[in-house]
Nucleic acid binder design. Structure first.
Lengths: 175, 175
DNA sequence: TATTGTTATACTCTATAACTATA
DNA sequence: TATAGTTATAGAGTATAACAATA
């Protein structure tokens, strides 16, 4: 008896659920990490194609969105929102500033922080980027159908939060 | 008129569909690339936790699966299956060989190729890794529910194939 | 000529530690 | 002491070019 009464979804017979019909992927087509990773790579490639004229990376786009919708945030806050280390966000913010999209304003209260805002050019660029990225979403919708597309977001966002509050050393004394 | 009759899914009101309830993520919670990327990172982190005793990376695990289920493949074929460049697969294969999991056999017909097989130790390790990774899948199923979990695979695999045959220079003359 | 495995190399992402100036 | 922004650096992952042996 090779198994207990675990989840018994089959490995993959439907050819639509295979990466390469010539090979046996075994349990790999039922490993969510693998499948999500392959999808992510393909989506990013498609994103680069759609946005190629705009010369913008997924990370840059996501930073622009956060800054556009939350003007005045500090770098650390934006980095935290995007789950990027603040040290690695420095170069990203500098690039967006040098391209004239983002302004780093000193704020009155705290001389350590820099408040991020879109410039006028940044707002213009952002609206065009948003249009292009929505165009990209339309491509993805066409690829998998609108129902499947709509159904993906909620479970993926919940997955993104799996592990929040993990790997903490056991200092959980509520005193 | 700011929009045509495009897809009109709302940005995100349900708190379950947010990454950080303190901030406005704007369209980001409806950008599949962003959501998939965040999910992928979280799943990999969770994978590392579950597999930590085994000291195995997602890439190593996926290679073992392909080799286990397709014994005798060449390095180039395994690399292609995993969408890894053959140059980058060299180090991965060498590591699996040095850990005693994989054997590279010369084959009679072609002295250039090396046929990959699991060793006895590799088969033993693989069955344990498969058990652990299935344990990991169970964690993910618990996090999002079995129905949502089962529904993710087919659309994600189709997304992984979006862009197959892209970025080709226009040499599409069927002569 | 083309292909297999390989090396070397560069570029991006990410993670950690440490510095400075402020608080 | 602690925090914001920053620098430096090291480690992965990935992409390209080129080479020797073989086809």
């Amino acid at each position: 008896m090779p198994k207990k009464s675990t989840h018994s979804a089959p490995p993959a017979r439907d050819p639509a659920e295979t990466f390469d019909s010539e090979l046996d992927f075994g349990p790999l087509t039922r490993r969510l990490g693998y499948v999500v990773r392959r999808a992510q790579i393909a989506i990013f490639q498609s994103f680069f194609q759609t946005m190629n004229a705009a010369e913008i990376s997924p990370a840059q786009y996501s930073a622009l969105v956060i800054i556009a919708h939350n003007p005045g945030l500090s770098q650390t806050r934006v980095a935290d929102a995007l789950a990027i280390k603040k040290a690695n966000f420095v170069a990203l913010a500098r690039e967006l500033e040098q391209r004239g999209f983002v302004e780093r304003r000193a704020i009155p209260g705290d001389k350590r922080s820099l408040a991020l805002h879109l410039t006028q050019a940044g707002r213009l660029a952002y609206s065009e980027l948003d249009r292009l990225s929505e165009e990209h979403e339309a491509k993805l919708r066409e690829a998998i159908g609108i129902e499947a597309y709509d159904a993906l977001f909620a479970p993926l966002i919940r997955l993104a939060k799996v592990n929040s509050g993990a790997a903490l050393p056991p200092d959980r004394d509520p005193d």
